[in-house]
Write a protein that binds this DNA or RNA. Structure first.
Length: 573
RNA sequence: CGGGGCGUAGCUCAGCCUGGCAGAGCGCUUGCUUUGGGAGCAAGAAGUCGAGAGUUCGAAUCUCUCCGUCCCGACCA
């Protein structure tokens, strides 16, 4: 492609509505343009990279035996009502009306559609296992679209759905997708890795997220550098580090006028460290109150709480509910002597002694609280959010917590959707059984941005060659048709192209500085530049985006460039 | 939905406080010069100052309402 014949609208300055670097580079390199918040046009360079990511995904999905299909983005609301997600996902479902005011849903995902499809087409165990996938545009009414393609209202996703006869077979399908994802991200030049994750509203049990560590990522991951343990903080556990004194003193009420927070009790005149306090929370889970106890220096993990309660329908109790239940206000609550409400305490509190907690009497706390003696009714569970530096559950070394971008997720779904939508098969004995499902997503457009987030420097993007819009940028520094540089450039363009190399010929009549800056900004992995000065010395120059300049005899340049491209491609094959 | 910022040329922004001719740089067009790291000179095109209402002799500027957009929070299949 000749630069003058395509549309690469690079920007010297970055638009003011882009905050994070990868978003700025997407705009500056002319890869995307915004239509509205969370809605983007893909420009010629962008669509080329996107197609390459999609090609890698298709090749690996097909290799795994999955079958590509295409399902409608526009869906009837009835199937969403059948699965129960019409209400459960109401906040993010886009709804539209047709000419007769009938309502439709713009699909944010396709469990309902694929289950309906399977209900009609899969009848026998002989058809199983089967894995159906598509690459398609999804719609989510995000409460807050942000960071360019990271969280958009319309985005491209690869979603796959496996159907198996039982749990064991489903686990094997899951494993196959897990391995496929590892290959896909590696081929995209992305350092992504799987972490244990929380299943959330999807209703599955076994799930991994594939994440790319990045400061701008929206999820937090606990990593162990020593043994490789990695989990979303929603799921992460740590080995317990209990260092409680053996003070057997009896409980004692003391006055704490106006003290309503862990923090204020940790300051003089009380000076009780947060780690020696018991934080008491009251939640209402499906209309029933529960009391949750955490050590004062920890935060509640709501994802774990959902797992414990077996429901996502819970909320903090209102001030009024709290007072009715415990006869005290938030800030003076405790679980000592509470029998009528279930009490769950974080595992870290098991065996704790000499703690301080609220007295259920405004303005008073209790000291010398011994968990096993004074709150014996508590059941110990993991409900805290792991903190940086805690010990790894597997090897005991310190965990570090880092931000990451979630680019994919694999789920073992079970039979929730197959039961709700009738995706059943006849087994060997002729009995009707629901298919055991799995679902597997990759955010294709988000992956594009994640690649940039992981591959840039001060000059711009530095694409892995497998997803670069072009392999090589041929840069003549004089574009007059009869000039020596342009004659060589034309020859290179023709010869490299016929060898199957994707060439961008910068035939713009621009100064060298502009051409170099632009080629580095848009991140083409290899550049072949031809200038009069170097030709006078009998050479042209080949350079990797991140490498040193290599001078070559003009007639050797094509062979060498092909070799470089092959080398780069081989690294990511 | 709560809090905050912003909205003026394609892009980045000044002007607003203290009302009085619509501005700069980059980009774009034309010409000359220049030609190995975002050149120089000259000329030119380019605007519903987000929208509406109000105050005023007069509003980009003051007031109100609305919209858009970005950031923080809540949320995130």
């Amino acid at each position: 492609m000749r630069w003058t014949q395509t549309l690469i609208p690079t920007l010297r300055e970055s638009p003011s509505d882009a905050e994070i670097l990868s978003h700025q580079l997407l705009l500056r390199a002319g890869i995307i343009r915004k239509l509205a918040a969370g809605l983007y046009n893909f420009m010629p360079l962008g669509i080329r990279s996107l197609h390459k990511i999609q090609k890698i995904i298709r090749e690996e999905m097909d290799r795994s035996g999955a079958l590509e299909i295409l399902m409608p983005a526009l869906q009837p609301p009835e199937i969403w009502q059948a699965s129960g997600r019409y209400e459960a996902a109401a906040d993010t479902l886009f709804k539209v009306n047709d000419h007769s005011k009938r309502e439709w849903v713009l699909g944010p995902t396709h469990e309902e559609v694929v289950s309906t499809l399977a209900a009609g087409e899969i009848n026998s165990y002989r058809q199983l296992p089967i894995n159906l996938y598509q690459i398609q545009t999804k719609f989510r009414d995000e409460i807050r679209p942000r960071f360019g393609l990271m969280r958009a209202r319309e985005f491209i996703m690869k979603d796959a759905y496996s159907f198996d006869k039982d749990d064991v077979a489903s686990m094997s399908s899951y494993r196959k997708m897990y391995d496929t994802y590892v290959r896909i991200f590696r081929r995209c030049g992305l350092k992504a890795f799987p972490v244990e994750a929380d299943a959330g509203v999807m209703g599955g049990k076994h799930t991994h997220e594939f994440v790319v560590p990045a400061d701008t990522g929206e999820c937090e991951i606990a990593f162990c550098d020593s043994c490789g343990y990695a989990a979303n903080v929603e799921k992460a556990d740590s080995a317990l580090q209990k260092t409680y004194s053996q003070n057997e003193a009896s409980t004692e009420l003391f006055e704490t006028p106006g003290v309503k927070t862990i923090e204020s009790l940790s300051k003089p005149p009380y000076s009780i460290p947060a780690s020696q306090q018991i934080k008491t929370l009251v939640f209402i889970a499906e209309d029933k109150p529960v009391i949750l106890l955490l050590r004062g220096d920890y935060q509640l993990n709501e994802a774990k709480l959902a797992g414990l309660l077996g429901t996502v329908i819970f909320r903090p109790a209102t001030d009024e509910e709290v007072f009715n239940l415990l006869k005290a206000h938030v800030g003076s609550l405790g679980a000592v002597g509470i029998k009528q409400v279930p009490v769950y305490a974080d595992l870290l509190l098991e065996g704790a002694t000499d703690m301080v907690t609220g007295a259920n009497k405004d303005g008073f706390h209790i000291r010398h609280v011994n968990m096993s003696r004074d709150i014996p009714q508590a059941q110990f569970v993991s409900i805290r959010t792991v903190k940086n530096g805690e010990s790894c559950v597997k090897c005991g070394k310190p965990l570090s917590i880092r931000n990451a971008i979630e680019v994919g997720q694999v789920f073992k779904l079970g039979t929730k959707y197959s039961v709700a939508l009738g995706a059943c098969y006849s087994d060997e004995k002729g009995e009707q059984k629901p298919c055991v499902m799995g679902c597997y997503g990759i955010g294709v457009t988000r992956t594009l941005q994640a690649v940039i987030e992981q591959n840039f420097d001060k000059d711009g993007i530095s694409w892995p060659i497998s997803v670069a819009p072009y392999h090589i940028c041929v840069t003549p520094l004089n574009v007059a048709p009869e000039s020596e540089p342009m004659k060589w450039a034309e020859r290179y363009y023709a010869e490299l192209s016929s060898a199957g190399i994707e060439v961008l010929l910068d035939d713009r009549d621009e100064r060298p500085g502009v051409k170099f800056k632009d080629s580095e900004l848009i991140g083409i992995p290899i550049r072949l530049s031809i200038g009069e000065k170097s030709l006078a010395k009998g050479v042209v120059e080949l350079k990797r985006r991140n490498g040193e300049l290599v001078a070559l005899k003009p007639e050797d340049a094509v062979a060498e460039a092909i070799k470089w491209v092959q080398e780069e491609l081989n690294k990511l094959s």
